[in-house]
Simulated scan of single mutants.
Amino acid sequence: MGMFDFLRARKNTASIAKDRLRIIIAQERSTLGGPDYLPLLRRELLEVIRKYVNVDVDAVKVDLVKDGEHDVLDISVSLPDGRAATA
């Protein structure tokens, strides 16, 4: 005990912060309800669809749904009333 006690406190604080960050990341992944690639897949689908049809950012929804023992990729696209994109 003495002059270097403050160094031990920082290691303990860093360890606690690291554990808290792991918990936060785990919670975010579980609330998203799917694998990490789903947001990227959604963005790429939106880019492809926008080549042909003007759609809103929220028009494409990608979810992973359990169907018994299988995972099913559920893709929903809300199309506008028939107006095509201008190239």
Results as ranks from 00 to 15, higher is better:
M3T: 11
I23N: 10
R8E: 09
I23P: 08
P35R: 05
G33K: 01
L45E: 14
F4R: 09
R43T: 13
P39F: 11
D5M: 04
I25D: 15
M3G: 10
R43G: 06
M3L: 15
D5C: 03
S15T: 14
L46E: 15
L7N: 06
L21E: 03
T13C: 04
R8I: 04
F4Q: 09
A14D: 06
I16R: 08
I23K: 10
R10N: 02
D5V: 01
I16F: 08
D5G: 12
F4E: 11
E44G: 02
L38A: 05
L45G: 03
R29G: 07
L45A: 06
E28W: 12
R20Y: 02
F4C: 05
R22G: 14
R42G: 06
I16H: 09
R10K: 07
R29N: 10
Q27Y: 12
L38N: 10
L41N: 01
R8C: 05
L21Q: 01
K11D: 15
K11Y: 12
G33N: 00
R42H: 07
S30R: 11
D5K: 07
G34M: 00
R22D: 13
L45P: 01
T13G: 13
T13V: 06
S30K: 13
L21I: 02
A14N: 11
S15M: 07
A9N: 10
P35C: 05
L38R: 07
Q27N: 14
R8S: 10
R10A: 07
R42Q: 15
R10I: 10
P39I: 03
I24P: 00
A14S: 04
D5E: 05
